[in-house]
Design a protein around this nucleic acid. Structure first.
Lengths: 343, 343
DNA sequence: AGAAAATAAGGTAACGTTATCATATAACGA
DNA sequence: TCGTTATATGATAACGTTACCTTATTTTCT
């Protein structure tokens, strides 16, 4: 039989009222209780294996549901997995539950999930949107759902939005290659016009310019998605033509970098002797692959922590001003880049 | 201002009672309603952007919380990520929320999470335990929490437990290598005594025996965890001594296989020309790595689907008998194995 | 036409908690 | 000793919803 133990059962067993039991569950500072009573109740709780029902607590009380929702474009993308991991760590410490939702780059799916999270009355939503509109977002906020955006902006709105400093990362990667003596640097940029990619690309072009190097449009590949498969395909095509136009490759994420490296190896060429390759994201596999990938690390943990904090401190003033915040990226040197001595 | 729209607001706006609104939210077959009324209510819901509160619904009604909990030993392990992915897909279709919890191979952390999920009154828990005891599990069941175990057993209990046929996978991998002409096959098995590993190892030894090959205990490495790092270390040690005692390597999971391959490459040797390597799990990176890894795929999606189904159909009879179920593994041939012509 | 059945909606209590108010006893200061 | 405050607990209503019961209107059948 399904035997649900409630606060009434505890009260009866301890010979007190439910109020007294409740006082133990929700300790406020200004409450008096005899030690003997406290002990009797505590014992009853233990003996009955009682656990308060968070639904009921949050429905009546002033606490929330102790749950947050994380909505990401792609759960299989290692970068988001690491974001989820960092966030889970924080949730664990705070004894929060984390509802993980993958929009799979579909806006309709994202909306279904946001709706679901709202019905579940989560204490907040952390969202990397694939195209939420201002109206929807404002609706959410009006209805009192704390929401924090990560990596991607919703134009015209005032929600706190947290970013890696993607521009900085683009600069770091490019400058590193230039310092190694590379002058002709291919950039595999993908076709998607999300802010993070635009910034990385801008970092690339600006840094070329700052170093007095020419910006060759033929060296900026803006097609397809930033996936392993696409990186492989792009590089394969390029190498089948000539492959002489560049000595280094800046990939806008690690996944494409992996695909690019695979195509290079298949062609019988070597990384880093023939081509230097640098990625972005520092996914866990970039330290494992062959050769280990030099890349730009995002401040994932810091972003996760601040997202959580923002939700917890959510007040009306969050609405008052646009709050874009950026955190520094970091160059991680491994073995996929080498000095350019020849060309 | 935080403006929570409730069923009362909808009722008021539509000019009906809350009962009538509720009837629309929870459609039972035997309910009558005038079309005009239905339409008025539906419109009010839309206009107010009303969304029912799942907490309240589940507290009063007969539905659950539409949430399940997934507890895994390691969220960063690609195998579990793919399990989570498969499960999320099912949850999405059913409009369930999924609380993702990583025990990080710590039993105390696992217990904290199970406790949290119980307080959240999830409709079920899907658990790959790192060492739950019978007593705890029986407690959960007594308290009416549907629970399904995956990959790992809790001895002496009667909970439905779902497995890949790890023994079969061990046989498939070993037989494949034998069919390629390998006679001396190293097995990197790790020290952990979990059922899945024991079964994989048994598949290995049984298949050797069935093919009339000697079982050389020196070729079974039972130390450390099944991680990339450890695989690398083990193979590096082995190669620094001699490396002549075997021509093929069966790794109990893909992660170690990746580490093993790295060590081989670092030694200037080649996979598959010098050593054939086969893994287990078919993690996404096994198709991306260099060379792409031949491996054994687990029926992850099937397991996820059945776990969910089991929870939904949870009845008292689930208690009546032990239900261990196994699903077939599958050999995935890629490029890390080759015929053994020389030794 | 009258009774029975079908249709359509409202009223109320309850789910498991806690906030708030009320009450009872004990301790204290004059 | 009495009034006042501190201590300790109980009673009740409410959170947002739905199950169940009740009531009012129609429709249908004889």
């Amino acid at each position: 039989m399904r035997e649900i133990v409630t606060i009434k059962d505890v009260a009866k067993r301890a010979g007190v009222s439910t109020s007294t039991v409740s006082r133990i569950l929700t300790p406020r500072n200004n409450t008096y209780m005899r030690d003997a009573t406290r002990e009797r109740v505590t014992r009853a709780i233990k003996e009955l294996d009682y656990r308060p029902d968070v639904r009921a607590q949050s429905l009546r009380g002033m606490i929330g549901t102790k749950t947050i929702g994380l909505v990401m474009p792609d759960t299989l993308n290692p970068y988001y997995q690491e974001l989820a991991y960092a966030l889970e760590e924080i949730c664990y410490k705070e004894r929060y539950g984390m509802l993980v939702c993958s929009s799979k780059n579909s806006i309709s799916r994202e909306l279904v999930y946001i709706d679901l999270l709202e019905r579940q009355k989560v204490d907040g939503i952390i969202l990397t949107t694939v195209g939420l509109h201002k109206a929807r977002l404002d609706g959410l906020i009006k209805r009192g759902i704390p929401i924090v955006l990560i990596d991607r902006d919703v134009p015209g709105t005032v929600v706190p939005t947290l970013f890696s400093n993607n521009y900085m990362g683009g600069c770091q990667a490019t400058q590193y290659l230039i310092d190694l003596g590379h002058k002709k640097i291919l950039c595999v940029a993908g076709s998607m016009n999300v802010l993070s990619n635009i910034d990385r690309l801008k970092g690339y072009t600006d840094t070329l310019g700052k170093n007095g190097l020419e910006i060759d449009k033929k060296l900026i590949i803006r097609k397809g998605k930033l996936t392993y498969k696409n990186g492989y395909k792009i590089m394969k095509d390029l190498l089948s033509k000539s492959g002489d136009e560049f000595t280094a490759i800046f990939c806008l994420n690690d996944l494409v970098a992996l695909g690019v490296m695979r195509a290079i190896h298949e062609k019988g060429k070597n990384v880093p002797s023939d081509y230097s390759v640098i990625g972005f994201d520092n996914i866990s596999f970039s330290s494992i692959c062959n050769p280990p990938l030099t890349t730009i690390a995002q401040p994932t943990r810091i972003i996760a922590l601040n997202a959580f904090k923002t939700i917890r401190k959510w007040k009306e003033q969050a609405l008052l001003k646009k709050k874009h915040r950026f955190w520094d990226t970091k160059l991680i040197v491994r073995e996929s880049c080498r000095e350019n001595r020849f060309r």
